[in-house]
Write a protein that binds this DNA or RNA. Structure first.
Length: 417
RNA sequence: GUGGGCGUAGCUCAGUUGGCUAGAGCGCCAGGUUGUGGUCCUGGAGGUCGCGGGUUCAAGCCCCGUCGUCCACCCCA
């Protein structure tokens, strides 16, 4: 056993998974940049207070923060998510609106790890600030759906709900508190604890004994104001016009307190484990203000890389790309020819690798095979004497000798470049 | 944070009621093939059996602790 291992909840991503991660982020970038979102790269840690503005009832903030004091005495925290950072950046830079940005990178939460849940986990996401237009809600949700389909995912369901405006949320929370308190005796002890903390979250309980009480709980749609209700209807209409299918779930309350109005979640029906939520988001119309900026509406989503890739695995889509060079050079003379030839090929835009340590031809050919190269170039004593190179396409038993001076042209021909 | 399963070679795992020098497959290296990979054959390297303590004539196996990992809960992506 090695002396050192990665810390709990962290891991190394090696090839071919690392290539899959990069491809994942590239597909995401392409999807959202097509809609005008630009990349933002916020820092991985911020003043603790930035994240505290996410809300006192948000467990991500109260229980799971990776926080510490730096050498200057600042109390900082590794970001548990990126929406707060984006809003802080908005207040700091005051870009013209609508400000539409995307991000990709790791977040940190101090939790007990299990499958699809790590202490350092990657998300990709977008945020759009500065407008209340319901078409923007539909655009944001549509982009997430588009991204899933670009990954080849089919078994993804969109659940959507509205939480009304700030006041509505309070009123609804009050209603729920009254309702659940009346039925407290039939709730599980976990739900009773949740009730005291955040009545809305009781709706999220998946525990069997709670289900009946939850099913009869008052729905938020009876509580929300006219404006928020109209907004929701417009969002739904816009989604239908885009052919994005959805399911209204008036029990959908997400974990971060700041959500207002539109809230949504994507669930993979291909996943068997408990963690089927592969992405989610919503409006957070009060957050910029809470961070000291002007009242500014905002909406966005974040998608978990790990869970989305687990869903891809379950559906057999978006397989990890194999990394291979085009040419592998076998040099059984002294290794210097391999060096010269590799350099020449690379300068001409051909990817090339070679063997080291002057191993036997058999060993070098084996390495050529492993490299995935389409073509092997072989240099032995005969070739050096005759100023030739043996060109061997790896998928056939045939090989032919080429003049050393014709190397680049012959390789291009063999690779059909 | 709570509860449970599992830690044996680089990987996946076997190892009987505690009993010879701890095994297999894959991978890796070498040879068969003094100039040829992907198939085949032969051989080889590689292990503090997670770590620490205890019981025993004897521990990979039993007991205690600890760390890691997985699963469920909590929570969430």
């Amino acid at each position: 056993m090695p002396e050192f291992k990665t810390s709990p909840g962290t891991r190394d991503i090696l090839a071919p998974d690392s290539g899959r991660w990069r491809a994942f982020q590239e597909v995401f970038a392409k999807t959202v940049e097509a809609a005008g979102y630009t990349l933002i790269i916020p820092p991985m840690f911020e003043d603790l207070d930035v994240f505290l503005r996410l809300g006192e009832a948000t467990e991500v903030v109260t229980k799971e923060m990776y926080d510490f004091h730096d050498k200057g005495g600042r109390h900082v925290a590794l970001r548990p998510e990126q929406t707060a950072s984006v809003c802080r950046a908005f207040v700091e830079h005051r870009p013209t609106t609508p400000w539409k940005v995307w991000y990709a990178g790791p977040n940190f939460r101090y939790e007990k790890p299990q499958q699809g849940r790590y202490r350092q986990f990657d998300q990709v996401g977008i945020e759009a600030l500065g407008t209340n237009d319901p078409f923007l809600d539909a655009e944001v949700i549509g982009l997430a759906a588009k991204f899933y389909s670009n990954l080849g995912l089919k078994r993804v369901k969109l659940a959507i709900n509205t939480l009304g405006d700030g006041g509505d949320r309070e009123k609804y929370a009050q209603k729920l508190l009254e309702y659940f308190s009346r039925h407290e005796s039939s709730l599980t002890s976990e739900s009773k604890a949740t009730l005291a903390r955040n009545p809305l979250r009781v709706l999220d309980s998946k525990r069997e004994p709670d289900q009946e009480v939850i099913a009869n709980a008052p729905a938020i749609r009876d509580t929300i104001g006219k404006e928020a209700g109209a907004h929701f209807e417009s969002v739904l209409a816009a989604l239908e016009a885009m052919n994005v299918s959805y399911e209204i779930n008036n029990r959908l309350v997400r974990g971060l307190d700041y959500y207002r109005r539109t809230t949504f979640e994507f669930v993979s029906t291909a996943l068997a484990s408990a963690h089927t939520a592969i992405g989610g988001g919503g409006r957070y119309d009060g957050l910029v203000e809470a961070l000291g900026g002007p009242a500014t509406p905002g909406i966005g989503f974040a998608l978990g890389l790990d869970r989305t890739l687990l869903a891809c695995d379950a559906e057999g889509s978006f397989v990890a790309p194999k990394q291979a060079v085009e040419v592998f050079v076998v040099d059984t003379v002294d290794g210097s020819h391999a060096q010269t030839i590799c350099n020449l090929l690379r300068e001409n835009g051909v990817t090339a690798d070679r063997a080291y340590d002057l191993r036997s031809m058999k060993a070098q050919m084996k390495a050529a095979d492993r490299s995935g190269a389409a073509v092997a170039l072989i240099i032995g004593e005969d070739e050096v004497q005759n100023s030739t190179i043996m060109l061997r396409p790896m998928n056939s038993g045939e090989q032919h000798s080429i003049a050393r001076g014709d190397l680049v042209g012959e390789v291009m021909k063999a690779l059909k470049k």
